[in-house]
Amino acid sequence: MDLLWLYAQALVDGLLAGVMYSLVALGFVLIFKASGVLNFAQGAMVFMAGLTFVSLMELGLHPALAGLATVAVMVALALAVERVVLRPLVNQPPIILFMATIGLTFIVEGATLSVWGSTPKLLELGDPYAAFEVGELYIVYSEFYAAIAVAALVIALALFFNKTRIGRALRAVADDHQAALSVGIPLTTIWVVVWSVAGVVALVAGIVWGGRLGVQFSLALLALKALPVLILGGFTSIPGAIVGGLLVGAGEKLAEVYMSETFGLGGVENFFPYLMAMLFLMVRPQGLFGERIIERV
């Protein structure tokens, strides 16, 4: 019976961690959908948003004010990226845009470090150990609230995409750039909007992850954790990012517990998601919820 609770606890921990992976993956999906660019800099954006937010708070700003100011910074970044990177490279092959975002990663990281310094900062989101119990499960409040925040964000995004004029235009651009141009949707505006939204998602991710790990450089590496999530869920699907995140989170924690209980192996959770992703690629390369390729016969 104890063992069962152990697995249940691993599952819950995994799902809660998974929600947070989804958050990073979400940023990738947004930009990939609207501009076909795999934005390698998403992790750097999480780092930038998180560190800017904490540093502003340390300067004595009210959290809400700091949040707003950070959003403004992310929108400014979106404007700059559109102007300096995307517009000159329009119509270039995807690999060139991908390379550009790798360059962008280092610029964003470097600039953030030189402005705010490289010391890790603590983000206090209430007592990190406070928890409640369900049966024998132990659920940490901060993680639980993070999951709720993510759920709210996803619902907000879904409404934005499906119910608003701009959201509809974003989906239209994702489907067919040329046709979107022909009905007068300006691609440049759409790119700024989508990078800004990705910036806001990065801020939420930065706060949630920063509260857990401290706000430090390793936040930028979260981008790598998002890749298996994307492969599982599909690069073009918001629900895919969520489900992919949950699968990766639950999968890695369960695998860890199983391997250490049965074989005494440790550290499986570090590579298990990538193993899952590779196996998955062979079976269903477009991901669970990847945009179905519509073929009329």
């Binding site: 509809r168 989906r171 239209a172 994702a174 489907d175 067919d176 040329q178 046709a179 519509i294």
Partner: peptide, 9 residues
């Protein structure tokens, strides 16, 4: 030419 509807909409 070729309609170019937004397929997923």
């Amino acid at each position: 030419e070729g309609r170019h509807c937004f397929e997923h909409l």
